[in-house]
Nucleic acid binder design. Sequence first.
RNA 1: GGCGCGGUGGCCGAGAAGCUAGGCAGCGGUCUGCAAAAUCGCGUACACCGGUGCGAAUCCGGUCCGCGCCU
Length: 304
Amino acid sequence: MKQIIIFIVGPTSSGKSRVAASLARKINGEVVSCDSMQVYRDMDIVTRPPEKDLLEMAAHHLVRIISPEEEFSAALFVERAKTAIIDIFADKNTPIITGGTGLYMKALIDGIFEAPPKNEILRKELEDLAEEKGRHALYKRLKEIDPETADRLHPNDIYRIIRAIEVYSLTGETIAEKRKGTEGIFGEYDCRLFGLEIPRDILCSRIENNVDKMFEEGLVKEVERINKLKLSLTAKKALGIKEITAFLRGEISQTKAKEELKKNTRRYAKRQLTWFRGDERVMWIDGDRSVEDIVKEIELRTTN
RNA sequence: GGCGCGGUGGCCGAGAAGCUAGGCAGCGGUCUGCAAAAUCGCGUACACCGGUGCGAAUCCGGUCCGCGCCU
Protein backbone atom coordinates (compact mmCIF):
# COMPACT_ATOMS: atom_id res chain seq x y z
CA MET A 1 0.00 0.00 0.00
CA LYS A 2 1.28 3.43 -0.92
CA GLN A 3 2.12 5.94 1.73
CA ILE A 4 -0.25 8.86 2.02
CA ILE A 5 0.77 12.46 1.45
CA ILE A 6 -1.72 15.21 2.15
CA PHE A 7 -1.67 18.41 0.15
CA ILE A 8 -3.45 21.56 1.18
CA VAL A 9 -3.73 24.25 -1.45
CA GLY A 10 -5.62 27.49 -1.81
CA PRO A 11 -5.11 31.19 -2.33
CA THR A 12 -3.30 33.49 0.02
CA SER A 13 -5.27 34.28 3.17
CA SER A 14 -7.36 31.16 2.87
CA GLY A 15 -6.04 29.83 6.17
CA LYS A 16 -3.96 26.97 4.80
CA SER A 17 -1.15 27.31 7.32
CA ARG A 18 -3.38 27.05 10.32
CA VAL A 19 -5.26 24.08 8.94
CA ALA A 20 -2.02 22.34 8.05
CA ALA A 21 -0.45 22.83 11.46
CA SER A 22 -3.60 21.76 13.28
CA LEU A 23 -3.95 18.70 11.12
CA ALA A 24 -0.29 17.85 11.61
CA ARG A 25 -0.62 17.96 15.36
CA LYS A 26 -3.66 15.76 15.26
CA ILE A 27 -2.39 13.01 12.98
CA ASN A 28 1.36 13.01 13.61
CA GLY A 29 2.10 15.00 10.54
CA GLU A 30 4.82 17.39 9.56
CA VAL A 31 4.25 20.42 7.40
CA VAL A 32 6.22 21.03 4.22
CA SER A 33 5.73 24.55 2.96
CA CYS A 34 5.27 24.91 -0.77
CA ASP A 35 5.82 28.60 -1.04
CA SER A 36 8.32 30.44 -3.18
CA MET A 37 8.66 33.29 -0.70
CA GLN A 38 8.38 31.73 2.71
CA VAL A 39 11.65 29.94 2.02
CA TYR A 40 13.32 33.29 2.69
CA ARG A 41 14.58 34.43 6.05
CA ASP A 42 14.72 37.98 7.30
CA MET A 43 11.66 39.30 5.55
CA ASP A 44 8.89 38.01 7.74
CA ILE A 45 6.46 40.86 7.32
CA VAL A 46 6.60 40.63 3.55
CA THR A 47 6.42 36.85 3.30
CA ARG A 48 4.22 36.16 6.31
CA PRO A 49 5.50 32.72 7.30
CA PRO A 50 3.40 30.61 9.68
CA GLU A 51 3.04 32.27 13.07
CA LYS A 52 4.91 31.14 16.11
CA ASP A 53 2.09 29.13 17.65
CA LEU A 54 1.76 27.15 14.44
CA LEU A 55 5.46 26.42 14.26
CA GLU A 56 5.21 25.09 17.80
CA MET A 57 2.25 22.92 16.95
CA ALA A 58 4.14 20.80 14.45
CA ALA A 59 7.44 20.49 12.64
CA HIS A 60 7.71 22.71 9.57
CA HIS A 61 10.00 22.25 6.60
CA LEU A 62 11.18 24.70 3.95
CA VAL A 63 10.21 27.77 5.92
CA ARG A 64 12.80 30.54 6.32
CA ILE A 65 15.67 28.41 5.12
CA ILE A 66 17.66 30.66 2.79
CA SER A 67 18.91 34.22 2.60
CA PRO A 68 17.03 36.78 0.50
CA GLU A 69 20.19 37.13 -1.53
CA GLU A 70 19.96 33.55 -2.69
CA GLU A 71 18.15 32.48 -5.81
CA PHE A 72 15.45 29.85 -5.56
CA SER A 73 13.48 27.90 -8.13
CA ALA A 74 10.93 25.19 -8.73
CA ALA A 75 13.67 22.63 -9.28
CA LEU A 76 15.42 23.50 -6.02
CA PHE A 77 12.10 23.27 -4.27
CA VAL A 78 11.38 19.81 -5.62
CA GLU A 79 14.78 18.58 -4.54
CA ARG A 80 14.36 19.83 -1.00
CA ALA A 81 10.74 18.82 -0.71
CA LYS A 82 11.52 15.26 -1.73
CA THR A 83 14.23 15.06 0.87
CA ALA A 84 11.85 16.40 3.50
CA ILE A 85 9.21 13.85 2.54
CA ILE A 86 11.65 10.98 2.88
CA ASP A 87 12.77 12.26 6.28
CA ILE A 88 9.21 12.59 7.47
CA PHE A 89 8.34 9.06 6.44
CA ALA A 90 11.50 7.86 8.14
CA ASP A 91 10.09 9.32 11.34
CA LYS A 92 6.83 7.48 10.65
CA ASN A 93 4.96 10.73 10.24
CA THR A 94 2.70 12.00 7.49
CA PRO A 95 3.86 14.79 5.18
CA ILE A 96 1.41 17.63 4.78
CA ILE A 97 2.44 19.77 1.83
CA THR A 98 0.92 23.20 2.12
CA GLY A 99 1.23 26.28 0.05
CA GLY A 100 0.07 28.50 -2.72
CA THR A 101 2.82 28.31 -5.28
CA GLY A 102 1.13 26.40 -8.05
CA LEU A 103 4.19 25.79 -10.16
CA TYR A 104 6.16 24.32 -7.28
CA MET A 105 3.26 22.11 -6.36
CA LYS A 106 2.92 20.85 -9.90
CA ALA A 107 6.64 20.34 -10.27
CA LEU A 108 6.65 18.18 -7.17
CA ILE A 109 3.55 16.19 -8.00
CA ASP A 110 4.00 15.78 -11.74
CA GLY A 111 7.72 16.19 -12.02
CA ILE A 112 10.15 18.62 -13.47
CA PHE A 113 12.46 17.55 -16.25
CA GLU A 114 16.18 17.29 -15.83
CA ALA A 115 17.81 20.34 -17.31
CA PRO A 116 20.60 22.71 -16.51
CA PRO A 117 19.72 25.90 -14.64
CA LYS A 118 19.56 29.23 -16.39
CA ASN A 119 22.55 30.47 -18.29
CA GLU A 120 23.00 34.21 -17.93
CA ILE A 121 25.17 34.69 -20.99
CA LEU A 122 22.79 32.84 -23.25
CA ARG A 123 19.80 34.64 -21.81
CA LYS A 124 21.39 38.00 -22.29
CA GLU A 125 22.05 37.10 -25.89
CA LEU A 126 18.45 36.07 -26.47
CA GLU A 127 17.10 39.11 -24.67
CA ASP A 128 19.22 41.35 -26.85
CA LEU A 129 17.95 39.59 -29.91
CA ALA A 130 14.36 40.15 -28.78
CA GLU A 131 15.16 43.78 -28.13
CA GLU A 132 16.62 44.25 -31.59
CA LYS A 133 14.41 42.18 -33.80
CA GLY A 134 11.32 41.84 -31.66
CA ARG A 135 9.74 39.02 -29.77
CA HIS A 136 8.53 37.37 -32.92
CA ALA A 137 12.08 36.69 -34.01
CA LEU A 138 12.61 34.59 -30.89
CA TYR A 139 9.30 32.88 -31.34
CA LYS A 140 10.22 32.00 -34.89
CA ARG A 141 13.43 30.49 -33.70
CA LEU A 142 11.65 28.35 -31.15
CA LYS A 143 9.15 27.27 -33.75
CA GLU A 144 12.02 25.88 -35.79
CA ILE A 145 13.66 23.92 -33.04
CA ASP A 146 10.65 22.91 -30.94
CA PRO A 147 7.37 23.48 -32.77
CA GLU A 148 5.39 21.53 -30.20
CA THR A 149 6.37 23.83 -27.35
CA ALA A 150 6.05 26.89 -29.57
CA ASP A 151 2.45 25.99 -30.30
CA ARG A 152 1.70 25.88 -26.62
CA LEU A 153 3.20 29.29 -25.97
CA HIS A 154 1.97 32.72 -26.97
CA PRO A 155 4.40 34.64 -29.21
CA ASN A 156 4.58 37.37 -26.58
CA ASP A 157 5.49 34.98 -23.81
CA ILE A 158 9.15 35.82 -24.13
CA TYR A 159 9.90 34.49 -20.69
CA ARG A 160 9.13 30.90 -21.54
CA ILE A 161 10.29 31.19 -25.13
CA ILE A 162 13.74 32.07 -23.87
CA ARG A 163 13.80 29.18 -21.44
CA ALA A 164 12.72 26.76 -24.16
CA ILE A 165 15.46 27.89 -26.50
CA GLU A 166 17.91 27.86 -23.64
CA VAL A 167 17.16 24.26 -22.70
CA TYR A 168 17.61 23.16 -26.27
CA SER A 169 20.85 25.07 -26.74
CA LEU A 170 22.28 23.68 -23.53
CA THR A 171 21.23 20.07 -23.92
CA GLY A 172 20.40 19.46 -27.55
CA GLU A 173 17.03 18.16 -26.47
CA THR A 174 13.77 20.05 -26.67
CA ILE A 175 11.43 20.72 -23.78
CA ALA A 176 8.74 18.75 -25.56
CA GLU A 177 10.98 15.69 -25.59
CA LYS A 178 12.10 16.14 -22.03
CA ARG A 179 8.59 16.48 -20.74
CA LYS A 180 7.63 13.07 -21.99
CA GLY A 181 9.98 11.25 -19.70
CA THR A 182 9.35 13.14 -16.48
CA GLU A 183 7.35 11.91 -13.58
CA GLY A 184 6.66 13.36 -10.19
CA ILE A 185 5.73 11.82 -6.90
CA PHE A 186 2.10 11.28 -7.84
CA GLY A 187 2.53 7.66 -8.84
CA GLU A 188 4.89 6.89 -6.02
CA TYR A 189 2.66 7.98 -3.18
CA ASP A 190 -1.02 8.17 -2.45
CA CYS A 191 -1.47 11.90 -2.92
CA ARG A 192 -4.60 13.53 -1.53
CA LEU A 193 -5.10 17.09 -2.61
CA PHE A 194 -7.42 19.41 -0.75
CA GLY A 195 -8.32 22.94 -1.77
CA LEU A 196 -9.72 25.49 0.62
CA GLU A 197 -12.58 27.29 -1.02
CA ILE A 198 -13.66 30.68 0.26
CA PRO A 199 -16.12 33.16 -1.26
CA ARG A 200 -14.23 35.80 -3.17
CA ASP A 201 -15.60 38.75 -1.23
CA ILE A 202 -14.61 37.22 2.10
CA LEU A 203 -11.20 36.36 0.77
CA CYS A 204 -10.72 39.93 -0.44
CA SER A 205 -11.61 41.43 2.89
CA ARG A 206 -9.21 39.06 4.62
CA ILE A 207 -6.49 40.13 2.23
CA GLU A 208 -7.16 43.77 2.98
CA ASN A 209 -7.01 43.15 6.71
CA ASN A 210 -3.75 41.32 6.32
CA VAL A 211 -2.20 44.15 4.35
CA ASP A 212 -3.32 46.64 6.98
CA LYS A 213 -1.71 44.44 9.59
CA MET A 214 1.52 44.28 7.62
CA PHE A 215 1.74 48.06 7.64
CA GLU A 216 1.08 48.12 11.38
CA GLU A 217 3.82 45.59 11.95
CA GLY A 218 6.36 47.76 10.20
CA LEU A 219 6.28 46.73 6.56
CA VAL A 220 7.85 49.98 5.43
CA LYS A 221 10.80 49.62 7.77
CA GLU A 222 11.33 46.02 6.74
CA VAL A 223 11.39 46.83 3.05
CA GLU A 224 13.74 49.70 3.72
CA ARG A 225 16.01 47.24 5.50
CA ILE A 226 15.96 44.43 2.98
CA ASN A 227 16.46 46.83 0.10
CA LYS A 228 19.97 47.31 1.42
CA LEU A 229 20.66 43.67 0.60
CA LYS A 230 21.45 42.37 -2.85
CA LEU A 231 18.05 40.76 -3.17
CA SER A 232 17.93 37.80 -5.50
CA LEU A 233 15.68 38.00 -8.52
CA THR A 234 13.34 35.57 -6.82
CA ALA A 235 13.09 37.34 -3.48
CA LYS A 236 12.71 40.69 -5.17
CA LYS A 237 9.39 39.56 -6.59
CA ALA A 238 7.71 39.22 -3.21
CA LEU A 239 4.55 41.27 -3.01
CA GLY A 240 5.08 44.47 -1.11
CA ILE A 241 8.63 45.21 -2.15
CA LYS A 242 7.78 46.98 -5.37
CA GLU A 243 4.94 48.96 -3.81
CA ILE A 244 6.81 50.06 -0.72
CA THR A 245 9.94 50.87 -2.67
CA ALA A 246 7.92 53.22 -4.86
CA PHE A 247 6.66 54.91 -1.71
CA LEU A 248 10.16 55.15 -0.22
CA ARG A 249 11.36 56.82 -3.39
CA GLY A 250 8.59 59.34 -3.07
CA GLU A 251 6.91 58.24 -6.27
CA ILE A 252 3.59 57.44 -4.62
CA SER A 253 1.90 58.17 -1.31
CA GLN A 254 1.73 55.60 1.44
CA THR A 255 -2.01 55.35 0.97
CA LYS A 256 -1.48 54.61 -2.68
CA ALA A 257 1.19 52.04 -1.85
CA LYS A 258 -1.22 50.29 0.44
CA GLU A 259 -3.96 50.28 -2.16
CA GLU A 260 -1.59 48.92 -4.77
CA LEU A 261 -0.44 46.16 -2.48
CA LYS A 262 -4.01 45.19 -1.75
CA LYS A 263 -4.86 45.17 -5.42
CA ASN A 264 -1.80 43.14 -6.39
CA THR A 265 -2.45 40.65 -3.62
CA ARG A 266 -6.04 40.22 -4.77
CA ARG A 267 -4.79 39.56 -8.28
CA TYR A 268 -2.27 37.12 -6.95
CA ALA A 269 -5.04 35.23 -5.17
CA LYS A 270 -6.99 35.13 -8.40
CA ARG A 271 -4.07 33.63 -10.30
CA GLN A 272 -3.61 31.05 -7.58
CA LEU A 273 -7.24 30.08 -7.91
CA THR A 274 -6.90 29.79 -11.66
CA TRP A 275 -3.99 27.49 -11.14
CA PHE A 276 -5.58 25.15 -8.62
CA ARG A 277 -9.03 25.17 -10.18
CA GLY A 278 -7.47 23.67 -13.27
CA ASP A 279 -6.28 20.61 -11.38
CA GLU A 280 -8.95 17.94 -11.42
CA ARG A 281 -7.32 16.09 -8.56
CA VAL A 282 -8.02 18.81 -6.04
CA MET A 283 -10.94 18.11 -3.73
CA TRP A 284 -12.46 21.43 -2.81
CA ILE A 285 -13.74 21.85 0.69
CA ASP A 286 -15.45 24.73 2.40
CA GLY A 287 -12.69 26.81 3.95
CA ASP A 288 -14.98 29.37 5.53
CA ARG A 289 -15.56 27.69 8.88
CA SER A 290 -13.64 26.67 11.96
CA VAL A 291 -10.23 25.12 11.66
CA GLU A 292 -11.43 22.11 13.67
CA ASP A 293 -14.21 21.40 11.20
CA ILE A 294 -11.90 21.68 8.24
CA VAL A 295 -9.34 19.42 9.85
CA LYS A 296 -12.05 16.91 10.65
CA GLU A 297 -13.23 16.81 7.07
CA ILE A 298 -9.74 16.32 5.72
CA GLU A 299 -9.12 13.56 8.21
CA LEU A 300 -12.36 11.87 7.29
CA ARG A 301 -11.65 12.06 3.60
CA THR A 302 -8.14 10.81 4.05
CA THR A 303 -8.84 7.72 6.09
CA ASN A 304 -11.07 6.14 3.49
C1' G B 1 -39.53 80.80 -11.93
C1' G B 2 -36.00 82.47 -16.23
C1' C B 3 -31.44 81.59 -18.92
C1' G B 4 -27.12 78.71 -19.91
C1' C B 5 -24.15 74.19 -19.71
C1' G B 6 -24.11 69.13 -19.17
C1' G B 7 -25.97 63.77 -18.51
C1' U B 8 -21.60 58.01 -22.51
C1' G B 9 -20.60 50.55 -19.77
C1' G B 10 -18.42 49.74 -12.24
C1' C B 11 -15.19 54.39 -12.65
C1' C B 12 -12.51 57.98 -15.78
C1' G B 13 -12.93 59.69 -20.66
C1' A B 14 -12.96 60.78 -26.46
C1' G B 15 -16.41 61.06 -30.37
C1' A B 16 -20.95 65.41 -32.55
C1' A B 17 -25.33 61.54 -38.16
C1' G B 18 -23.31 55.56 -40.87
C1' C B 19 -16.61 53.21 -40.03
C1' U B 20 -18.24 48.95 -32.67
C1' A B 21 -12.07 55.17 -29.17
C1' G B 22 -9.03 54.37 -25.17
C1' G B 23 -7.57 53.86 -20.01
C1' C B 24 -8.47 51.94 -15.08
C1' A B 25 -11.01 48.47 -12.12
C1' G B 26 -13.24 43.62 -12.59
C1' C B 27 -13.66 38.62 -14.63
C1' G B 28 -11.60 34.30 -17.18
C1' G B 29 -7.39 31.53 -19.06
C1' U B 30 -2.10 29.89 -19.94
C1' C B 31 1.97 28.13 -17.14
C1' U B 32 8.27 22.91 -16.35
C1' G B 33 14.75 26.15 -13.26
C1' C B 34 12.87 34.38 -11.41
C1' A B 35 6.11 31.86 -10.60
C1' A B 36 3.95 36.62 -4.70
C1' A B 37 6.54 36.35 -11.65
C1' A B 38 5.45 36.50 -16.81
C1' U B 39 1.73 36.25 -20.48
C1' C B 40 -3.10 36.11 -23.17
C1' G B 41 -8.41 36.83 -23.69
C1' C B 42 -13.30 39.18 -22.36
C1' G B 43 -17.70 44.64 -22.12
C1' U B 44 -21.79 47.47 -28.74
C1' A B 45 -22.46 51.88 -23.18
C1' C B 46 -24.32 56.58 -24.75
C1' A B 47 -30.61 59.57 -18.85
C1' C B 48 -35.94 58.94 -20.56
C1' C B 49 -40.05 59.67 -24.24
C1' G B 50 -41.37 61.15 -28.99
C1' G B 51 -39.91 63.20 -33.86
C1' U B 52 -36.83 64.08 -38.50
C1' G B 53 -33.52 60.94 -41.59
C1' C B 54 -32.42 54.98 -45.56
C1' G B 55 -29.64 55.45 -40.87
C1' A B 56 -29.43 59.17 -34.37
C1' A B 57 -25.07 58.45 -28.72
C1' U B 58 -24.65 62.42 -32.33
C1' C B 59 -30.06 66.78 -35.25
C1' C B 60 -35.20 68.68 -33.33
C1' G B 61 -39.10 68.83 -29.35
C1' G B 62 -40.50 67.43 -24.54
C1' U B 63 -39.57 65.02 -19.57
C1' C B 64 -36.31 63.98 -15.53
C1' C B 65 -31.59 64.73 -13.02
C1' G B 66 -26.95 67.60 -11.96
C1' C B 67 -24.16 72.20 -12.12
C1' G B 68 -23.83 77.47 -12.80
C1' C B 69 -25.81 82.30 -13.38
C1' C B 70 -30.02 85.68 -13.08
C1' U B 71 -34.73 87.37 -10.73
